[in-house]
Nucleic acid binder design. Structure first.
Length: 925
DNA sequence: GCAAGGTC
């Protein structure tokens, strides 16, 4: 702190904290609870504490009050607030104002009244970017009534006496850059959120039949840079599950039982997808079933207690242990915090400060009837149970990890959820300061006919923290004693089949994990974003797992089909990087704002041009209403020819709202036959001239006018063209611009198809390209939004090049041979496997949505066995021990061609089944 | 009727 106050005269200092509890605690610490007075402010929650204090020799009369988080909000100016007052694209530039909302006016009044009386303002907001921004909001309010205020910032990371005294003696100036970063975030969030939300709501809400229970409220199809990536995680997992093709695998299981117990030996190959190979190896084991012990290893293993608890871990664990939603968890935690039983529940910190008195917290818990005795042992040095907690590596510099602050055996007013959550916080804390559990592990490896197997036995030597942390367990199993070189005959040796399973739907804990890793939301808001998915009817939660609704899936699909990754976390991650750059002065606030908004506006305009993708995606799931939902591009047009797809309606020429032309079927959406025309057309009129070549006729020719600079030299600006297929000029221009014919009447939209987005419609001609590319490289021009200074890979509105989920969906539809599904009876298709062990092998799979059942391998069908797609020399994964089927008589052969076994069961010889289904399989002593 | 971030 460089400046001093008013010499020896007592000055009045207004201190402002981010929340009432901090104002109270800091006042208590600084005053040492001596001469501390409290009086009411204008807001019933935000009291004012008064006491005397000396800052660097300067006697001060301290006034300490608080806000409750942000004091201000940003909003569009009045004339832009009504949804129909402007085009949503205008929201990228509409004037924005920051104001104190109605429910914070009383806090503002308190600040104004106190600031008028003071010479200094000391800001005690949380020490993060948001806290710095709130600090500037407080400064704005206070300075407006007292421009002479001397403004200071106190830095503290926990509410510990020494740190607070130190903070007030080392005041600095507030950091404008930190605050700027938050201003940028707020403005981008508002402009993107409001524009896209209005756009997609007004476009789709009335165009489809949605039967969501909105309780009389308007249906809002919101978009937000946090809620959409959260939805994206849910949809992506769902697509992964749908794209999963079950595959059968085989593994050899061995067990050995003695008086000392049972050892289950696992095949060290894991499992094989090649049945023949597995059978051959199994057969060798059966023929030479003596096991030889090749390794016995004994070692001590430790299982460590968890790190101290932060918000995300609290939410994840409450979800896992109690199936409590993150929203509920935070509500209950807030209650417990408000009533003083646990510490502040919104914290990223998972390590305790070295100055925290950890023992006091345990002492309080000694009285508890259930975990009290454990707390007593923990405090007894002779038990050796105490261990200083580990460091999780996160520190928000504002709050300690979540820990119990007051003992309770359970309050009468507590719900079951309150009891569970308090217990979790206490047990977690006690676990953190306990020794790890100790186990003795024995690993035994055996060899049967050259195949290796291993078994693990564990005995728990000391449970330690597991005694109190009942939510975790550590399975122990006794196995017999073995010695190196020992031989024995297994009790059972079986060839078991299994089938690969898709991953499960995302649990709340998984979803929080995804968001945490991708930086979506903050610890205080993540549960809000999750709840928003269900509030907006984008996802449902069933048995603690999230599944997208048709609406959620369709919206993501629509943007994905446009090629945008608005539903992926990258946009938020890039914004977060820019915020960091602003906060350390590496980028200017105005530059980041301008660049980001320019790019997002380009993305918005492009999305609007391609809105048909959203329609197509929603049409897969919902019926259309008679209302257009603002989409009028399919209403009128000039007749070009009879539709060559539905043969029932006409193909008509239309001009789209963006000025570009297309030819589509008048029966849209029942028929989605469409011809996209080059973007270089400035005018197009259907003439009465009929093409003499194209059939079936009549096909009316069109008088086109092209923009000179957008067509190659040698092409005429005026052209009487035919779109029936005979016209080379049109064909060439269409190819150059990536436009052309598409029949989408039978295929739901997936991927770009031939519909080139408008940005590609004015490609330079061949001669111009090298020069243009060079210019682009020199200027680093984004090929998407056409702004300089970044490439398309750095564009906020990233286009999707890597569409794994969609390509999987597309690839899964490569079959052509019908066969009824054994599960649902729907027709199946023949597909080609793409896994390492079965690449190229054909199989039948059900095509019915929601079934997707793997039916069988093509070569396992009896009538086709002789000519199966696998060759007789299929090699196993075991080098020289290859084996397979011969091509003709269906017998197994070894790599040398010697017959090994017939196609009948090699265990009992019955031709009606194979060994894996044999009732006698396995070998018993 | 829209975002996300604070907190009560």
């Amino acid at each position: 702190m460089a400046a001093r106050g008013g010499g020896g005269r007592t000055i009045r200092v207004l201190n402002v904290a981010e929340k009432p509890s901090v104002a109270k605690t800091v006042s208590g610490i600084l005053s040492n609870n001596q001469g501390l007075r409290m009086r009411e402010g204008r807001s019933r929650y935000n009291k004012i504490f008064e006491f005397n204090y000396t800052i660097q020799g300067q006697p001060c009369q301290m006034m300490f009050t608080s806000v409750t988080g942000h004091l201000m909000e940003i909003e569009f100016e009045g004339r832009y607030r009504k949804w129909h007052s402007c085009d949503p694209v205008d929201l990228f530039e509409a004037p924005i104002q920051k104001h104190v909302p109605e429910d914070k006016l009383d806090i503002r009044r308190t600040l104004e009244e106190e600031a008028r009386k003071c010479q200094w303002l000391v800001l005690w907001l949380d020490c993060d970017r948001e806290g710095e921004n709130i600090a500037f909001e407080v400064v704005e309010v206070c300075s407006s009534v007292n421009s002479q205020l001397n403004i200071w910032r106190a830095h503290f990371s926990s509410l510990i006496d020494r740190e607070i005294h130190q903070a007030v003696q080392q005041l600095t100036r507030p950091n404008q850059l930190f605050s700027d970063a938050v201003d940028v975030r707020q403005e981008i969030d508002l402009r993107i959120g409001a524009s896209f939300t209005r756009f997609q709501t007004m476009l789709l809400k009335d165009a489809f039949v949605f039967n969501f229970p909105t309780d009389g409220r308007n249906l809002v199809l919101s978009y937000g840079p946090c809620q959409f990536p959260t939805l994206g995680f849910v949809v992506e997992r769902y697509w992964e599950i749908q794209a999963h093709e079950p595959e059968e695998f085989w593994k050899i299981q061995c067990s050995h039982t003695t008086d000392e117990g049972t050892a289950n030996f696992n095949w060290m190959r894991g499992h094989l997808f090649d049945y023949t190979c597995a059978v051959l190896l199994y057969e060798m084991c059966v023929q030479e079933p003596i096991a030889t012990v090749t390794k016995v290893r004994q070692q001590e293993k430790l299982k460590y207690p968890p790190h101290p608890l932060n918000t995300i871990e609290l939410e994840k664990r409450a979800s896992r242990y109690f199936r409590m939603s993150s929203e509920k968890t935070m509500k209950v935690a807030e209650d417990l915090y408000q009533s003083g039983f646990i510490s502040y529940p919104r914290t990223e910190t998972d390590s305790f400060s070295t100055r925290t008195d950890l023992h006091i917290l345990v002492q309080e818990q000694q009285a508890h009837p259930v975990w009290g005795p454990y707390a007593q042992r923990l405090l007894d040095p002779s038990s050796g149970l105490w261990r200083n907690p580990s460091n999780g590596g996160h520190d928000d510099k504002a709050h300690p990890p979540i820990h119990p602050t007051k003992f309770s055996p359970g309050e009468s007013g507590w719900s079951e959820d309150h009891k569970k959550l308090y217990e979790l916080v206490v047990r977690h804390y006690l676990a953190c300061v306990s020794q790890p559990a100790v186990g003795a592990e024995t690993t035994v490896e055996i060899d049967i006919a050259g195949e290796m197997f291993s078994a693990l036995g564990r005995t728990i030597v000391a449970k330690n923290y597991l005694e109190v942390y009942r939510f975790e367990s550590w399975g122990g199993s006794l196995i017999p004693n073995y010695t190196f070189g020992q031989q024995f005959t297994p009790t059972s040796l079986t060839l078991d089949s299994g089938i690969t399973r898709p991953p499960p739907l995302l649990s709340e804990s998984d979803l929080l994990d995804c968001m945490d890793k991708a930086g979506i939301g903050t610890d205080a808001t993540m549960h809000d974003h999750i709840k928003k998915l269900t509030d907006r009817f984008y996802a449902t939660k069933e048995a603690s797992h999230f599944k997208p609704t048709n609406l959620g899936e369709a919206l993501v699909m629509g943007y994905d089909d446009m090629g945008y990754e608005l539903w992926k976390p990258y946009l938020r991650s890039m914004m977060e990087e820019d915020m960091k750059a602003v906060s350390v002065g590496n980028k200017r606030k105005d530059d980041v704002l301008a660049t980001c908004l320019q790019q997002m506006k380009a993305c918005f305009l492009d999305a609007r041009v391609n809105k048909v993708k959203l329609f197509q995606a929603l049409e897969i799931f919902f019926d259309r209403t008679n209302r257009t939902g603002g989409d009028d591009q399919h209403n009128h047009g000039q007749l070009v020819r009879r539709c060559d797809v539905c043969h029932d309606s006409d193909l008509v020429l239309r001009k789209k709202p963006d000025g570009k032309f297309m030819i589509g079927c008048s029966a849209y959406p029942q028929c989605r036959n469409v011809i996209w025309l080059p973007g270089s057309i400035s005018e197009a009129v259907v003439t009465q001239t009929v093409c003499n070549t194209c059939t079936p006729g009549p096909v009316f020719k069109i008088e086109f006018t092209f923009r000179r600079l957008e067509i190659p030299p040698g092409f005429s600006v005026h052209h009487l063209g035919c779109v029936g297929g005979c016209d080379d000029v049109m064909r060439q221009l269409m190819e150059m611009s990536g436009s052309g014919h598409r029949n989408s009447s039978t295929t739901p939209a997936r991927g770009r198809g031939v519909t080139a987005p408008s940005r590609n419609n004015s490609q330079p001609n061949q001669q111009q390209q090298p020069q243009r590319q060079q210019q682009q490289q020199q200027q680093a021009t984004c090929s998407f939004c056409h702004q300089t200074g970044h490439s398309s890979s750095d564009c906020y509105s990233l286009t999707s090049q890597n569409r794994s989920a969609r390509s999987q969906r597309a690839n899964s539809n490569n079959g052509d041979s019908p066969l009824p599904c054994t599960t649902c009876g729907s027709p199946c298709v023949l597909k080609t496997a793409n896994t390492e062990s079965n690449r190229g092998r054909k199989f039948y799979s059900c095509q019915s949505q929601g079934c997707k059942f793997f039916v069988c391998w093509e070569d396992s069908i009896p009538t086709t066995r002789g000519g199966g797609s696998r060759s007789a020399t299929t090699t196993s994964r075991r080098g020289g021990r290859g084996g397979g089927q011969d091509g003709g008589n269906g017998r197994f052969v070894s790599a040398t061609g010697d017959p090994v076994s017939g196609r009948s069961c090699f265990i009992c010889g019955d031709p009606s089944h194979f060994a894996n289904a044999c009732p006698n399989r396995g070998m018993r002593n």
